[in-house]
């Protein structure tokens, strides 16, 4: 199956933006509760981008990032990343596990805290998507990696790369009040799943030519 990117109009991108808005909005609320701080969310982007451009959203393929990945299964399949730079991840973890440790490395406990943060945030993102679309989705346990953005994000592109060199990315970033924490959600639905989302939201691709 090939994706007809051409059949996709402004309305589809708007719908996906709304998906990102609702999902990340819920996740931001969850995060705000978790660390008892105000969280500002940026207006989400829904874009069709070339593989090489995806990593540019988080500082380039060489940038070291902390990423929590979950696979989405069910009616919709794909992957979801929650990506932070190292300083932001450190800051976030400090809120949960106060420490005097000034070293840039993460302890095992901090690793597991980050994994749990990712789990909670992506879980709330997904729950709101399920409510919104009435589609059945569930996610895998989280897996965490700290490495080059290119090496990490490419993993989420394996399915997509079999049909083309472009990915539909729903990107939402948020900042805490003092701008110390910046995080990105990437939702990368597998190609066959995109139209299911559109159909569930009343804007199937086929009828919009």
């Amino acid at each position: 199956m090939t994706i007809k990117w051409n059949g996709m109009g402004e309305i589809h991108l708007d719908v996906l933006k709304e998906v990102g808005n609702i999902g990340a909005g819920n996740a931001a609320t969850a995060l705000s509760k978790l660390i008892s701080r105000d969280i500002d969310m940026k207006v989400p982007h829904a874009r069709i981008v070339h593989f090489d451009q995806i990593t540019e959203l988080v500082g380039g393929p060489d940038a070291v990032v902390v990423a929590i990945l979950l696979h989405i299964n069910g009616d919709v399949q794909g992957s979801m990343f929650f990506i932070l730079n190292e300083a932001s991840a450190k800051e976030l973890v400090k809120e949960l596990l106060p420490t005097n440790d000034q070293t840039p490395n993460f302890t095992d406990l901090e690793f597991s805290a980050l994994q749990e943060i990712g789990n909670i945030l992506i879980g709330s993102y997904l729950t709101s998507l399920i409510d919104f679309t009435q589609l059945n989705m569930y996610h895998s346990v989280p897996s965490l990696a700290i490495d080059m953005a290119g090496a990490i994000v490419s993993y989420g592109l394996i399915e997509l790369s079999q049909v083309g060199d472009y990915a539909m990315v729903i990107d939402t970033s948020f900042l805490d009040g003092s701008k110390e924490v910046e995080g990105h959600f990437f939702f990368l639905p597998d190609p066959e799943s995109l139209n299911k989302i559109f159909r569930a939201l009343g804007v199937p691709l086929d009828e919009c030519h």
């Binding site: 593989f51 090489d52 990593t55 290119g150 990490i152």
Partner: peptide, 19 residues
């Protein structure tokens, strides 16, 4: 990513972020 190219001396050829 998903790209190839060639180069010759004295140039260098690089790819970033292999996972």
């Amino acid at each position: 990513m998903a790209d190839l190219n060639i180069a010759s001396s004295p140039d260098r050829i690089r790819t970033v972020g292999l996972g």
